[in-house]
């Protein structure tokens, strides 16, 4: 891989890491499988692209964050007040967002070629670190988000937010409404996802109606890969793990493409990575059990087995 390609991959990884942090918040911290992500990612991209067209790329990012937060709150509302299952709540909002995103964009694709973006409006940085604007800009944003998120999760509200995913009964018994914590958590998660989408649109210079498809799985893959590499024993470590996971995921994908994998197979690979990571513990257990059974059949335990058969016959006789 050339160094330019490597740099591009890392930049993408950093942008996607913000999305992965959102997925981490809902799946890991809140313990809620939130599928809104696919829609809110595109929503962020759509809003950010629209603001670029209007000539204010900077305003696009906070607006994307807010819109994502709104989408997350709607999912939370469906679940807490409407008592709809978490998965279904997310899918419903994701579906609704497909139409909303089309309305926001006005068409299926918005190219941003030759328009000012947040990456091109830093002439002083351009002069000082030519070619590294995107890398420096996005990684500073990521570090800022990591610090803020870490600090937030250690505040009084942050503590009960984390506890909500582990033991909602306990949270209620210390006097906190779990509907509130869940709503704030999902809003924040989808805000981050939409911010990531907004940043990506300005980075790759287009927004597309289908760019969010499968984003949940990409985020989840990043979380799982990061946990495997870095570990997740304490909060700071877990946050860093998610970030590293997002970058590593991009590197893996880039390498696979280098080796000739067509880009259209990308989603298949993501699904395979996540499915195997999720199924690994269960498969390992079954494998071990099968090994023990084979050993027991081969070994000299035949007498025991006969005893056991005799025991089993007793009740029916």
């Amino acid at each position: 891989m050339t160094s330019i390609a490597l740099q591009g991959t890392v930049e993408l990884g950093i942008i996607y890491a913000i999305m992965a942090l959102g997925v981490f918040l809902s799946f890991r911290i809140l313990n809620m499988p939130d599928l809104t992500v696919d829609g809110s990612f595109t929503l962020g991209a759509a809003i950010s692209a629209l603001m670029c067209l209007k000539g204010s790329p900077w305003a696009g990012l906070p607006l994307a964050f807010l819109a994502g937060g709104l989408a997350g709150s709607v999912t939370a509302l469906l679940h807490t007040k409407g008592r709809i299952q978490p998965l279904l709540s997310g899918i419903l909002v994701m579906l609704a967002l497909y139409s909303i995103n089309l309305r926001v964009m006005g068409r299926a694709n918005i190219p941003l070629i030759n328009l000012p973006t947040v990456f091109s409006t830093w002439p002083w940085l351009n002069r000082w670190a030519e070619g590294y604007t995107a890398l420096i800009g996005s990684s500073s944003l990521l570090v800022l988000i990591l610090l803020l998120l870490f600090g937030f999760l250690k505040t009084r509200f942050g503590l009960v937010l984390r506890a909500t995913g582990q033991n909602p009964q306990m949270v209620r018994s210390v006097g906190v409404n779990t509907d509130t914590t869940l709503t704030v958590g999902l809003a924040l998660a989808n805000g981050l996802v939409a911010l990531s989408g907004g940043l990506l649109a300005q980075y790759q210079l287009f927004a597309d109606i289908s760019m969010g498809v499968g984003m949940v799985i990409v985020g989840l893959a990043s979380v799982i890969i990061g946990e495997g590499i870095i570990g997740s024993h304490w909060l700071g470590q877990h946050l860093i793990a998610v970030t590293v996971g997002a970058v590593v995921y991009r590197l893996v994908i880039a390498m696979a493409m280098e080796l000739g994998m067509p880009p259209t197979d990308l989603k298949l690979i993501s699904a395979v990575i996540v499915a195997s990571a999720l199924a690994a513990p269960a498969l390992k257990e079954q494998w071990n059990l099968a090994k023990r059974q084979i050993q027991a059949q081969k070994g000299g335990g035949s007498e025991d087995a006969e005893d056991m058969e005799a025991d089993q016959k007793l009740p029916s006789g």
Binding site: K154, T155, R156, F157, L159, V174, G175
Partner: peptide
């Protein structure tokens, strides 16, 4: 410590003050 902090904040504001 964090568990106790959550219980101890009962009835107080749950804002962005440090947890412990």
């Amino acid at each position: 410590e964090e568990n106790l902090a959550m219980a101890c904040a009962k009835g107080k504001s749950r804002g962005l003050l440090p947890g412990v």
